[in-house]
């Protein structure tokens, strides 16, 4: 199928791209890997008149900032993140989350920034609106909502399916947004609004410059799981990510970050479950209680024919497993079992 006609520009630096975005306003689209944008342009979910390409800009290799944080350029391909020795050594969960995205061909093309800014998904939104679904939905600028016909408040109940964002939030990472005049830095969890119409706080004249991951606290461990039907080339039904740290005694939990993704308009942290775990011994009972508390406090939307009950049960089981894994890694030392496929 042939795409509609558009213009294409290829500035030489991030600042030039941001300046062009400021001039063009909302009619511009940012093209990096194109694995999310181009299929969405075919479905007319997004119809930018001009594509501003990042193809002429080379990604900086992963490196360490002066403050000890790992800095990954947003233009880094996902295949480079999963295979980078630097990333695998410093934060295996990050490499793991890049490893489970899409297929090899998608990871060779897709970039980190593109994955974090991907369009939200919905069974109805991600279809051509010219045959079964003639009227545009709220997200497409229309006046209806197919999954929720009684939705009259102009909200978009769709799901943000990045596999990497939950891992980055669990690691406590920051994101750097580059604008024409200034750049700003914020925690990745503040980058997501949890609103379907505007899933991120990215302005029309900004783009993601880099992601910074802090060094892990002592005695910490991680757990990550992406639930799918087939196990490959698939969007997630549930993503769970956790990073825990044990205290100096090695017996009580000193820090916990639990994130559930791909079940609502943005990744959500289970702060109640986290604070219940901190200070307690990570017994199987405490882990089970934390998993069910996390599922109870996060927002779940039914999506892609999965019911809320099914998604909640799936998230609870895998949260329990990844929390035990994380505490196991925290006890045996960092990086253990980090590269299992």
């Amino acid at each position: 199928m042939i795409l509609y006609d558009f213009e294409h520009e290829r500035p030489g630096s991030l600042q030039d791209v941001a300046a062009r975005l400021a001039e063009l306003g909302p009619t511009a689209g940012i093209l990096a890997g194109g694995t999310d944008l181009l299929p969405n342009m075919r479905l007319k979910i997004r119809t930018p008149a001009t594509l501003v390409s990042l193809g002429a800009i080379a990604a900086q290799p992963p490196g360490t900032d002066t403050d000890g944080w790992l800095r990954i350029d947003a233009l880094t391909r996902l295949s480079e993140i999963e295979n980078s020795d630097t990333v695998r050594a410093a934060c295996p969960m990050f490499a793991r989350s890049a490893h489970v995205v899409g297929s090899n061909q998608i990871r060779q093309a897709g970039t980190l920034g593109g994955n974090l800014c991907q369009e939200i998904r919905c069974l109805y939104l991600n279809q051509e609106h010219d045959f079964q679904f003639v009227a545009p939905c709220y997200k497409r600028g229309g006046d209806c909502c197919y999954p929720y016909p009684k939705n009259e408040k102009d909200f978009c109940a769709s799901v943000f399916m990045s596999d990497i964002a939950p891992a980055l939030i669990a690691l406590g990472s920051d994101i750097e947004l580059v604008g024409a005049n200034a750049s700003r830095r914020m925690a990745v969890e503040d980058f997501y609004t949890g609103v379907g119409m505007t899933p991120t706080v990215l302005r029309a004249d900004e783009l993601v410059g880099a992601v910074m991951v802090p060094p892990p606290p002592p005695n910490s461990g991680w757990g990550y799981h992406k639930s799918t039907i087939r196990g490959g080339l698939e969007f997630a039904m549930v993503v769970v990510a956790a990073r825990v740290a044990l205290g100096e005694d090695g017996e009580t939990c000193a820090d916990a970050r639990i994130v559930i993704g791909a079940v609502s308009e943005g990744p959500s942290r289970a702060r109640g479950a986290e604070s219940a775990l901190v200070g307690a011994a990570p017994t199987p009972e405490a882990i089970a209680a934390a998993a069910s508390a996390a599922v109870a406090e996060c927002r779940f939307l039914p999506h892609h024919n999965f019911s809320v009950e099914y998604l909640k049960q799936n998230a609870e089981v895998y949260l329990r497993r990844i929390l035990s894994e994380a505490f196991g890694r925290a006890k045996t030392g960092p990086g253990k079992g980090g590269q299992d496929q």
Partner: peptide, 13 residues
């Protein structure tokens, strides 16, 4: 040398 999808790649890129 990288395996990529020709249907999701603009020729101009």
């Amino acid at each position: 040398g990288r395996p990529m999808l020709a249907c999701s790649t603009l020729a101009v890129e």
